[in-house]
Design a protein around this nucleic acid. Structure first.
Lengths: 223, 223
DNA sequence: AAATATTTTTAGGCTTGCCTAAAAATGGTT
DNA sequence: AACCATTTTTAGGCAAGCCTAAAAATATTT
């Protein structure tokens, strides 16, 4: 039952949240270290402190998971991060590859009222500029039946709704080839020798994308 | 020639900036301590560090003043603080007594591009919700010929353009009596025994305000 | 099951930013 | 000029958040 979390502590909770969500198991010390950019020793220290204040469950050598109150804080952080990203892109016209670092700072601004008013001002968006769902004020994430683009079969079509990978390099590449959220893709062919995909973009031009790109694009299948 | 200032260091620079501006002399250790809310010993420590990195001029027992680069940083902080206040009031509809704490956090978000785009989005405002001038991108403050309301003579009129004191209590009081930025006041009478002022507000109702209130309101005289 | 590799924790240390208490410097009085 | 009050600095300490190196625990290989 602590009240004031430092930005560093918040970042650890967020890291644990993302790791547990993706891996569907306790977050390991090394995984957390990689995500927050600290040494395993520092993480070990911090896990002890977070567990002592009941933000996480942690048994030595057994990884960490969030407690209920930890989950609440982490979800709010994700909410804040993604709302600020929407603000930066839609209101201040940044591009989707520029906003992460700023949102990373803005998410630590402490004011519940601010988040709600921002959400309101933005029209209560359900997804951020990368297509990631924004939890609502009660912490609920919107669901969507999506799949990696690479899971489509030849002849099927989908709408791009998100990206898995969010590196600047990848996002800039997508901008370059004109592939963004909302684009329609019709899968024309899968080349066997390297798994690259030929797709028709918005019913107009043909593109060839690597299998890695296909795996990092999220699509909603069109029946 | 340092690049990365911590929020704490930034707060000290801002404090020195405000003190030097108001007092028109070097900021004393105690004055800084009062402003940042730390002990004189802590301030003494910090002044040494800031001087070592050329953010301030500081000779033992002789107070501190900002160097050119220190002034630049402090002015940018003031700019960021006041722009965020405009954002919070005009865009998110907070009232002018609620925004200080949030702006205090938002001003430490590091991104030059963000400030400029925010300024742009807000229409390059020259004054914040309390009437304080917002330095432009080159650090220049708008000038205005203003005076405390209490400096007016009976029979003279002015437009309220700012407040000296920014406490929640004072701002709420002003809201209550309907006195805000832009209001026109005609000074009708000064009561001798306690210096309180009788003014006509926007040509409509009569108000009596204490001398202290009069001293904390900034007015632009109407000829 | 023992040996080896990997992961995690502990130990000890560093900087930042704060504190209190004591010492030193400054400024005003007489 | 000497005393006194005030201000400022120094000294020593503490917590947060990081580090490296070494030790301990766990997992994998043979």
């Amino acid at each position: 039952m602590e009240y004031h979390l430092s930005p560093a502590e918040e970042n650890y909770l967020k890291a644990i949240f993302h790791i547990c969500f993706q891996e569907e198991k306790a977050a390991t010390t090394n995984a957390i270290a990689a995500m927050v950019g600290a040494s395993a020793a520092s993480v070990s220290d911090m896990l002890k402190r977070l567990a002592a204040n009941d933000w996480i469950h942690h048994k030595s050598h057994r990884g960490a998971t969030l407690t209920e109150q930890g989950k609440k804080v982490a979800t709010l952080l994700v909410r804040k991060h993604r709302l600020w990203e929407v603000f930066l892109v839609q209101v201040l016209h940044f591009s989707w590859d520029e906003v992460h670092y700023m949102a990373e700072q803005l998410e630590h601004v402490q004011s519940d009222e601010l988040v709600e008013r921002l959400d309101d001002f933005l029209g209560r968006p359900k997804f951020d500029p990368h297509g990631d769902p924004i939890p609502n004020a009660r912490g609920k994430f919107a669901q969507r039946n999506q799949m990696p683009l690479s899971a489509l079969k030849v002849g099927e079509s989908g709408i791009i709704v998100g990206v898995m990978e969010q590196s600047t390099a990848f996002l800039r590449y997508l901008d370059k080839i004109g592939l963004g959220i909302g684009a329609q893709v019709d899968l024309k062919e899968i080349f066997e020798f390297d798994g690259s995909l030929q797709v028709e973009l918005n019913g107009k031009n043909l593109l060839t994308i690597s299998s890695k790109v296909g795996e990092n694009l999220l699509a909603q299948k069109i029946k």
